[in-house]
Design a protein around this nucleic acid. Structure first.
Lengths: 340, 340
DNA sequence: TTGAAAGCGCTAACAT
DNA sequence: ATGTTAGCGCTTTCAA
């Protein structure tokens, strides 16, 4: 069906090597160049990347593994990643592992078999043992948002601790002292960082931490709802809550609506991620946002850089890029008392 | 690095054909089977899909083109599609075309060059001329959510007209007669269907249609906000609005909040898609929802079926699967008067 | 610069 | 049932 290099060779009377050289930016006599270009046009030739991949052992495909495609935060990052990579001629194979470590490991296998040139992963698990395969094959791995313990690769993430600390400090500044947190699962790297930020803010303000004010959820909407309910039940006098991810923020809001808790009159809330939802909420939610596009861009660029490197040096010197979050003011925080 | 079939052949003393036969489910003597399996285990052999693809001219990769990955509706569908396909050994290459026809056409080219076995597309444009390539190559195309005019392929979509008609009828039943609609762009197939449903409902109830009550938006949050604003300005006595997609629903809510319009006291709203947002809204939004998972599943299954078909018959007899939407009751519709 | 030829890892005749 | 062999479309020595 499709024309091959052989066809071009025949049509131009040139040898395969010349065609190949032309296609790969080598030097070709002007006259022949024109000849080739004409033949390519006439025969609608286009290189077969599959065949090329077999020969060069590079598929020009990057594997991407994410916990949930169906999650704005992931989707925004991936959108950017895909854009950058495709502009550089790379295709992406995306695997959604449904926040399941087993599926995640399977996805790594799947992509490895597919001979992807590199792997971008937003880890669901935290033990990156199965990434060894890529390291051994000298194929670059870039982790996004979370760091895996035993994984060899670069990393792009945000300053979670700082973001949480900053948010809680704002609550404190508004006069809140009984501040709850809807934290994420212990196994999740970012969740722990955010929890640490919360604790740090309290400590710095001299507010003693109370265990009843910390509730964990599994980073889902439902987890947010349930956590919120428990938090409210246990702490009748709590005046503010910091929610540490997007899904749980939604869940918390749903639950507050359900329970008839007025925001911010009875309870102040600072959420996490997804500006659009925050704006659509009534009252507008105050939130911490992550620079998703920049995260995606940086990760893709890091990957491209690694791919361009000669032979993946022995001593890789992995990089970690840490980006800043921002705070977007809404109307979900009540000022109890203006602090100095 | 990785072991090849040759290595297995050498290790077992068998011929390549036997190994190949074993790998492809052919008949192999029990004794040899064990031999092969042992060698595979010891040498960590795994077939090179790239090489296989070169030979068989089938890459076991399906191309997916969507308008915005960063859009819950798309993401939910794709999640399902990817799951089904991967369970059948197919990888997916996803291209986000940012709702841009030019990018869409480029994505088709890109994926075609990559020799994907089939194409799943949620069309941004409506002239599917550039899909010809796939038809000519006898590679299946399945369209999701929208139908393209000159495109040859199967289709999975929902009953948009019926859904809109049903929603508007509910408003009418609650006693509303001055009902606005935030419609989508004229070029968008589904948008027109939904608008038609709105008109049909009015007509059936004997309510004359007023042009001032129809506003178009570009299916973005911003488009929803602006449309809502215009609608409200032009129609002081309007009591209800039907919004015909998710992003615009969000935009409409944002704007209503901004303008201080109480929902449903002063304005009733029925939105579209995304249950979670609807639940998180205060008051809970009444919405039309699409069965995203089922759409994805059906589309993937249709693709698999086409791929399994012998030689893509000359007379393809394309299928169109149409799925039902549902209505989820919230508290955003005020009952003005109970109709018979 | 260009051509000839080998070979990447696999499948599929064709023989046996 | 198994072995032999010829390619799939490309890149890449090695000569010329």
């Amino acid at each position: 069906m499709a024309a091959t290099m052989k066809d071009i060779a025949r049509a131009t009377g040139l040898g395969l090597a010349t065609i190949s050289s032309y296609l790969n930016g080598g030097n070709v006599r002007e006259k022949n160049r024109l000849l080739i270009e004409q033949a390519i046009k006439e025969l609608h030739f286009e290189v077969n990347e599959v065949a090329r991949g077999l020969k060069t052992n590079r598929t020009k495909v990057i594997g991407i593994i994410i916990p949930e495609l169906n999650n704005i935060f992931c989707a925004e990052i991936i959108t950017e990643v895909e854009d950058v990579l495709r502009n550089h001629g790379y295709a992406t194979m995306i695997c959604d592992c449904r926040t399941d470590e087993k599926r995640e490991a399977e996805a790594v296998e799947f992509l490895y078999h597919r001979r992807v040139d590199g792997l971008l992963i937003m880890p669901a698990g935290n033990k990156g043992a199965y990434l060894q395969r890529f390291a051994k094959a000298e194929k670059p791995v870039v982790m996004i948002d979370r760091k895996m313990q035993r994984a060899a690769g670069d990393c792009v993430l945000v300053d979670n601790q700082g973001a949480a600390r900053d948010a809680v400090k704002r609550l404190i500044k508004a006069g809140h002292t009984r501040i709850g947190i809807l934290a994420g699962p212990e196994e999740v790297y970012t969740a722990e960082e955010r929890l640490r930020g919360y604790r740090m803010a309290l400590k710095e303000a001299g507010i003693p931490e109370e265990s009843s004010l910390t509730e964990r959820g599994n980073y889902t909407i439902r987890g947010g709802s349930e956590g919120m309910r428990r938090l409210v039940q246990k702490n009748p006098v709590m005046t503010a809550v910091f929610v540490s991810n997007y899904e749980m923020t939604m869940g918390a809001i749903i639950e507050a609506n359900e329970l008839g808790i007025a925001i911010p009159e009875r309870l102040s809330i600072i959420g996490f991620d997804n500006l659009e939802f925050a704006k659509a909420s009534s009252p507008r939610l105050s939130i911490v946002t992550q620079p998703t596009r920049e995260i995606g861009r940086k990760a893709a660029e890091l990957m491209l850089r690694r791919l361009a490197e000669p032979g993946m040096e022995k001593e890789p010197a992995y990089e970690t890029i840490r980006l800043k979050t921002s705070y977007v003011e809404g109307k979900s925080v009540k000022v109890l008392r203006q602090e100095a």
